[in-house]
Design a protein around this nucleic acid. Structure first.
Length: 422
RNA sequence: GGAGAGGUGGCCGAGUGGUUGAAGGCGAUGGUCUCGAAAACCAUUGUGCGGGAAACCGUACCGGGGGUUCAAAUCCCUCCCUCUCCGCCA
C-alpha cells in the first residue's frame, strides 16, 4: 500500500512512478475518497467534541441531583446523527482501503523502464555454460531414466504439475534444503519453520490479497490459504509490532513447500517439474531500516547467488524492468540458472525490495531509539533457492553421457553419494 | 468434542456507567547525587487520524465487530484468540 498522506503532498510524483508500470492506475478515485474522508472527519470530530462536553455537564447535573431531561433529549438527537455520520465515515474508509490495496508499489528510480521481460537488463553472469560432447537430455528424461523422478505416478496420485521424487531424487531434494539452510544460517540468517496455511490478513499484508486470489489455493471452509511462498508467513512474523531499531536488520531463512494455482499458465512450460502446483523453496526474508534496504537487497541477492556458486551452476542476474516487476516490489533482481535442455537461462530466484509497501499493509514498524516515533520498516525477500528448479539444474548441468549424474562437491556429504546412477 | 477461566498501555496488574488515556508496579528516557557506577530521589514516558510553522488543540482506540445509553474499559450480543480440566488424537 502506498502512503496516502504522501500522495496528498506530491501526487504527480506517484502518478509518474505508477505510469512506468504496465497497466494504468488512476489515483483519482482514491484521492477523492480521501478528500471526502478528511472533510467528514472534521465534521465528526466537532460533533463528538460537543457531545463529550455536554455529556460531562449532564454527569455533573446528575450528581447534583438536578434535572437533565431536556438536555438529554437534545443530546439524543446529536448522538443519533453522530452515529449516522460514523457509519458513512466507515464506508468511505472502507472504500479507501479497498482502492489503496489494489494499487501497486512505485518502482525505484534505478529500475529500468520496459514493457515486458524482453526489456530486463542483464546485470552480471557467473560461470560458463558447459560445452557438451553429446546431446544433453532434459531433466525429466534424466530423472525418469534414473528412477528418481516419477511424474506419471505423481499425476495419478494428484494430477498434472505435481512431482514424486524417489530414492536418491528424494534425498537430493532433502539434501539441497539442508545445504541451503545451513549456508544461510552460517551467513547470519535465523532459520524459521512456519505454518504452511495462513489467514487472509497475512496474505493481504504481503500483497497476495485481495488482487491475486486466483493464484492461491484456498482451503474449503474459507479459513486458510496455502502459502504460495514462505515470504507470507515469514514477513508477517512481526506484523502489527514495533521493533527496536537496534535489532535491524532482521534476517530469516525458511524452508517451506509452496502452493500455486498457476491458473492461466497452460501455454507455459509443461515439461518436467519446472512449473508445479507444489514445490519446495528456501526463502530469505529481511526487515531493514529504509536507508539500508537497497544495500540489503544487493547482499540478499549475493547470498542467493552464493548457493549457485557453491553448486558450481552457471547463472546470470537480471534487473527486472518496470513492466515485468511484481505488484508489491520496488526493485527486483531475478537470478536465472543455465538449463542445457532449453539452451537458455531460467529463473531460479527472485529477490525484491518492497520498501514500505508490505510493512504499511502488515503494520511492521521500528523505533530508532526509545524516544523516537515508530517508522515503517522496509521488507525484502528472495528465493535462496527454488529447490525443484535447483534439482533440474543439477540433473541437466551435471549429466554424463552414460545417463548418470555427478553430484557437485559441496553437496556430496549431504547426499552421501558422488553420483546418481551407478 | 464437553466443562470452565480470561483477553486493559513496552511488560505485570487495578478499574463502582460519568473530570479514566486509564491507579499501582516494573521497564525505558531525562535529571539530581557520585571520581564513576549502583542505590535512592525527582520528572517524563502509547498509537492512529484531523487541524497547526510550532507549542498545542480536537478526536478515536482498554482483543475484533455490533448494540443499549446523554455518556461504555465498565452493561448486552457476536466473532476471534489464550489458558485450565475431561475426552480423543499425530
Amino acid at each position: 500500500m502506498l502512503d496516502i498522506k504522501l500522495i496528498r503532498k506530491d501526487r504527480p510524483a506517484f502518478e509518474k512512478g505508477l505510469a512506468r508500470r504496465n497497466g494504468t492506475y488512476d489515483l483519482g478515485p482514491l484521492m477523492e475518497a480521501e478528500e471526502r474522508r478528511v472533510a467528514m472527519q472534521s465534521e465528526l470530530d466537532g460533533m463528538r467534541a460537543r457531545l463529550n462536553e455536554v455529556s460531562g455537564e449532564i454527569g455533573k447535573l446528575m450528581r447534583e441531583k438536578k434535572d437533565a431531561t431536556a438536555i438529554k433529549a437534545e443530546m439524543k438527537g446529536l448522538s443519533d446523527s453522530v452515529k449516522e455520520r460514523e457509519t458513512a465515515y466507515r464506508a468511505v474508509e472502507n472504500d479507501i482501503t479497498a482502492l489503496a490495496l489494489m494499487i501497486p508499489n512505485v518502482p525505484d528510480a534505478s529500475v529500468p523502464d520496459g514493457k515486458s521481460e524482453e526489456e530486463n537488463v542483464v546485470v552480471r553472469s557467473w560461470g560458463e555454460p558447459r560445452q557438451f560432447t553429446f546431446t544433453p537430455k532434459n531433466h525429466q528424461e534424466i530423472g525418469e531414466t534414473l528412477g528418481i523422478l516419477d511424474l506419471k505416478r505423481a499425476a495419478k496420485i494428484s494430477g498434472a504439475r505435481f512431482a514424486l521424487y524417489r530414492g536418491l531424487g528424494a534425498k537430493l531434494e532433502r539434501a539441497l534444503i539442508s545445504f541451503m539452510l545451513n549456508t544461510h544460517t552460517a551467513n547470519g540468517y535465523e532459520e524459521v519453520l512456519t505454518p504452511f496455511l495462513v489467514n487472509a490478513k497475512s496474505m493481504t499484508g504481503t500483497g497476495q490479497l485481495p488482487k491475486f486470489e486466483e493464484d492461491l489455493f484456498k482451503i474449503e471452509g474459507g479459513e486458510y490459504y496455502l502459502i504460495p511462498t514462505a515470504e507470507v508467513p515469514v514477513t508477517n512474523i512481526y506484523a502489527d509490532e514495533v521493533l527496536d531499531g537496534a535489532d535491524l536488520p532482521k534476517k530469516f531463512c525458511a524452508y517451506t513447500p509452496c502452493f500455486r494455482r498457476e491458473a492461466g499458465t497452460y501455454g507455459k512450460v509443461t515439461a518436467g517439474i519446472i512449473r508445479q502446483h507444489q514445490f519446495n523453496k528456501v526463502e530469505l526474508v529481511k526487515l531493514a531500516k529504509p536507508e539500508d534496504a537497497m544495500a540489503e537487497l544487493e547482499a540478499l541477492t549475493a547470498d542467493a547467488e552464493g548457493i549457485l556458486q557453491k553448486l558450481e551452476l552457471p547463472y546470470r542476474v537480471v534487473a527486472l524492468c518496470t513492466g515485468d516487476m511484481g505488484f508489491a516490489s520496488a526493485k527486483t533482481y531475478d537470478i536465472e540458472v543455465w538449463l542445457p535442455s532449453m539452451n537458455r537461462y531460467v529463473e531460479i530466484s527472485s529477490c525484491s525490495n518492497f520498501t514500505d509497501f508490505q510493512a504499511r499493509r502488515a503494520g511492521i514498524r521500528f523505533k530508532r531509539d526509545a524516544k523516537a516515533k515508530p517508522e515503517l520498516v522496509h521488507t525484502l525477500n528472495g528465493s535462496g533457492l527454488a529447490v525443484g528448479r535447483t534439482v533440474v539444474a543439477l540433473l541437466e548441468n551435471y549429466q554424463r553421457e552414460d545417463g548418470t549424474v555427478e553430484i557437485p562437491k559441496a553437496l556430496r556429504h549431504y547426499v552421501g553419494a558422488d553420483s546418481i546412477g551407478k
